[in-house]
């Protein structure tokens, strides 16, 4: 009952919101504005893909399952690394590689803390979040570090087939991760490991490897999002940690956009766009963006409450 309501209701709510804004704000559905929403959703969306991988591999229990609270801080650190190295005159490919490596390394540390030290992900990544935020401050001295690079120009200004480059990043990342997570044997097994570890073990899977890999993917996503962020703000900026709430909201909201009510990459893409449309619509209607924050909090509460009600009902 609740399940059916969530499944059908969520898409309905999505469409109703679009319709409402389209009526209230005349240029909401213009091609320019839609493209705008897609590119503005890229940073949060890619981060939320990372969180989605972790939730799939660790299980969707908010307290004991997979969670990566360090994603936003990881983005901040990667962006700072990129900006500093780029300003130091390193070659672009090396700068990009090192920024990506930084993200993956953070993922590796998180993953090892969860798999080897058996820390609850909630605490492990809460701790690493603080460490990363500190490192970022060391690198940036808590100021904006502007930087300039052809890659960033391409990402922020470029377009192909009328679609802005950041929107392409969002869609291509979503496409690749969908193939990996939803359609490859690896992805299917990752689902099994997260949802029913004993079953995965009985099927001969080495659970720890899968869980670790999900944190590596999350780290990679943070680094990719960091490049988008650097392009968007023309360098490293402070306050990346503020994105955490939105990222968590998107990843858990994504659950209601899948038939089976589990975290999925397409579901997360939908949720990222929904949040993007909300922010954008409120801007067009001149509603303070503070409301969006409150709304996200409410959405997290609703989705987590609904999903825990579901899991109480379905498990014998």
């Amino acid at each position: 009952m609740l399940e059916a309501l969530l499944r059908r209701g969520s898409v309905g709510v999505f469409l109703a919101i679009l319709l409402g804004f389209a009526v209230a704000a005349p240029n909401f559905l213009s091609v320019g504005n839609l493209a705008n929403v897609f590119s503005q959703s890229a940073i949060l969306g890619v981060l939320a893909f990372g969180l989605t991988c972790v939730i799939i591999g660790g299980g969707s229990n908010v307290v004991a399952g997979g969670l990566d609270l360090s994603l936003a801080a990881n983005l901040g650190l990667c962006a700072a690394v990129f900006s500093r190295l780029n300003n130091a005159g390193l070659e672009l490919w090396l700068t990009v590689s090192l920024a990506l490596a930084c993200g993956v390394a953070v993922g590796l540390i998180n993953g090892l803390a969860v798999v080897l030290l058996r820390l609850p992900p909630l605490l492990a990544t809460l701790a690493s979040m603080n460490v990363l935020a500190g490192l970022e401050l060391v690198l940036t001295e808590n100021t904006v570090v502007p930087t300039d690079s052809p890659l960033l120009d391409l990402l922020s200004g470029g377009a192909w087939l009328g679609v802005p480059a950041l929107a392409w990043v969002l869609l291509v990342t979503a496409g690749l991760l969908t193939l990996l997570i939803q359609h490859s044997p690896y992805g299917l097994r990752l689902h099994a490991v997260g949802e029913y570890p004993q079953a995965a073990e009985a099927a001969g899977l080495r659970n720890a490897r899968y869980v670790l890999s999900s944190y590596l993917l999350a780290g990679l996503c943070a680094a990719v999002a960091a490049l988008c962020s650097a392009a968007f703000f023309s360098g490293s900026t402070t306050g990346s940690g503020d994105m955490l709430l939105s990222v968590v909201a998107i990843a858990f909201l994504g659950v209601v956009f899948s038939r089976r009510l589990v975290a999925s990459i397409p579901g997360t893409l939908f949720a990222a766009l929904l949040i993007g449309f909300l922010i954008n619509g409120f801007q067009l209607l001149n509603v303070s963006s503070f409301w969006v924050n409150g709304l996200q909090g409410v959405l997290i509460l609703l989705v987590v409450a609904a999903s825990s009600a579901l899991s109480r009902g379905s498990h014998p």
Binding site: P185, G187, A192, E195, A199, L261, S314
Partner: peptide, 22 residues
């Protein structure tokens, strides 16, 4: 796993593949 389809539940760990995909 409860969210798996019957096909996925029967074969996970030894999936039937087409190319690199399930």
């Amino acid at each position: 796993p409860a969210s798996f389809t019957v096909g996925e539940a029967l074969f996970f760990g030894h999936e039937l593949r087409r190319g690199p995909f399930v």
